[in-house]
């Protein structure tokens, strides 16, 4: 394996991680506001198909992405309406939408299967792209990849460093307190759920117009990514930077799987492709273990010096959900 090969591979990881970043950051925004959007898996497939369709018909990448964003906004608006206005279970509606939008994508996408569509090319940034190593890695990507990287920092800044961001944290943690301080909890939750869904909706066309270009029905390879993005949101502890790290790590594992596949031919390729999933369970286990009762009890039996160190380790791994996640807000 030469250095060039690895560099090219890692640049590919940044590119193929971009839609996962968009999806999991979108979900982070929504969950920060207290709404779990469980429809991600179907939503990405559906927006990918619709975006590809429009891009094929109009030969416009821009309209393709716009369509994806609109699909994302629409589906997440259903989640918002049913959970905020109708106070139905977010998980139930999200799950139904995850299945239904997926089937809808395969049904409506049947006629455009295998069609040749436009593909987004990379736009190297002058000068910066000439920097050794960093250039090919970060500055010879497509516009959407740049946008996804910038988005990570914007969302991080918004949540932690601005007043509206503080309000956003408030409506997810303690909506009654945010309400007292003048926040319109329902309206804000609508806004952030739809905004988050719009970002998720961009992930679909980013696959079908770039990372996994084309629409091939059930073998397009988008099924499962939405569930992964949801898990990454938890793994990232609802912190955009940690979430992005999780997304790139997942893309890296997938690339590693592909590389190993050629040298480890004795393992069926399908098995290597799912290697990230056991790791997902393990990481979820790691970040959640600190919240369980028996670990706390076990810790109490340890000698003081060791306990403090173990506690610190657990705390650094632990991620805790916004306190009001999944619960409807009722004015008292």
């Amino acid at each position: 394996m030469s250095g060039d090969f690895i560099l090219l591979g890692l640049a590919g990881v940044i590119a193929s991680g971009a839609p996962i970043v968009l999806a999991s950051i979108g979900e982070t925004i929504s969950e920060r506001a207290g709404v779990t959007n469980l429809s991600l898996n179907g939503l990405i497939i559906f927006s990918g198909m619709m975006g590809f369709w429009v891009a094929v018909e109009t030969d416009s990448l821009f309209l393709g992405f716009l369509t994806g964003a609109l699909v994302g906004a629409l589906v997440s608006a259903i989640v918002a309406f049913s959970s905020i206005t109708l106070k139905q279970s977010q998980v139930a509606v999200g799950f139904i939408l995850a299945i239904t939008t997926r089937d809808l994508a395969y049904f409506l996408g049947n006629p455009i299967m295998g069609r040749q569509g436009p593909i987004m090319l990379s736009t190297p940034i002058p000068l910066l792209s000439q920097i050794p190593i960093l250039g090919p890695l970060f500055f010879q990507q497509s516009i959407m990849t740049y946008a996804s990287i910038i988005l990570i920092f914007i969302v991080w800044f918004w949540i932690y460093k601005t007043r509206p961001g503080l309000m956003l944290q408030g409506i997810g943690e303690k909506p009654s307190a945010a309400y007292v301080r003048g926040a319109n909890v329902g309206r804000m939750r609508y806004f952030y759920t739809i905004l988050g869904g719009t970002l998720v909706g961009l992930a679909g066309p980013l696959f079908t117009l770039s990372v996994k270009a084309g629409w091939k029905g059930t073998i397009t390879g988008l099924d499962g990514i939405g569930w992964i993005a949801l898990a990454i949101t938890i793994f990232g502890g609802w912190n955009p930077i940690r979430v992005a790290f999780g997304a790139y790590f997942f893309a890296f594992l997938q690339w590693l799987g592909l590389v190993l596949q050629s040298s480890w031919t004795f393992i069926p390729s399908q098995v290597l492709q799912v290697a990230p999933f056991p790791l997902m369970i393990l990481t979820l286990l790691l970040v959640n273990l600190g919240n369980t009762e028996w670990v706390a009890r076990l810790l109490a039996t340890l000698p003081d010096g060791v306990r403090e160190r173990v506690k610190k380790l657990i705390r650094s791994l632990r991620s805790q959900a916004p306190a009001a996640l999944g619960t409807p807000f009722e004015r008292e």
């Binding site: 399908q270 492709q273 056991p278 369970i281 979820l284 959640n288 273990l289």
Partner: peptide, 26 residues
């Protein structure tokens, strides 16, 4: 995973689904 690991059954279950599929195909 849910009771002793604090892993939400939705995500534990999803991960186990993928592993089961891989095992089957393997």
């Amino acid at each position: 995973l849910k009771v002793f690991g604090g892993v939400n059954e939705i995500f534990g279950g999803l991960g186990l689904n993928f592993i089961a599929t891989a095992l089957n195909i393997g």
